[in-house]
Amino acid sequence: MADAKPKIVGFCCEKHGTESVDLAIRSGEQYDASVRLVTVPCTGRVDGLHILKALEDGADAVFVLGCLEKNCYYDTGSIEGRKRVEYVRTMLSEVGIEPERVEMFNASSTMVWKFPEIASTMSQTARRLGPIEPRGDTK
């Protein structure tokens, strides 16, 4: 079921995460307006809770974008962020929600192409999967 206006949330770190977004848009790149970006100091700050709450608050897909591993401004932050994303994906599979709704990406401040590709991937996933089907026993 395709959703004409999906809701996607992206948690971007304020270092290479937002810098790669900035570079892309300052090269004329466009991306799906459905993507809502939230800045965090480091993707290590992202808790599984934030991702799950975003899904609960209406997001069809959530991504986390941080610096490349071993190049994280805060050393191990993006590695921690990835662990959190993996944990959430496991949880989602266990409750029957498609894990590909949640994804971790890494970028550097020189990648013009990366952010538009991320936005496009998540947008396509959100449209393909549609909103999360509420389970019968929840409201």
């Binding site: 939230v38 965090v40 100091p41 480091c42 290590g44 700050r45 992202v46 808790d47 809770l49 934030h50 401004y73 805060y74 191990t76 932050g77 921690e80 962020g81 959190r84």
Partner: peptide, 23 residues
Amino acid sequence: CGICAGICPSKAIELHNYTDDQL
């Protein structure tokens, strides 16, 4: 950086001005 706040299993740590409620 908030790595501790993100990982704490008891949700006992908050990062000022990037708290769970704020985000």
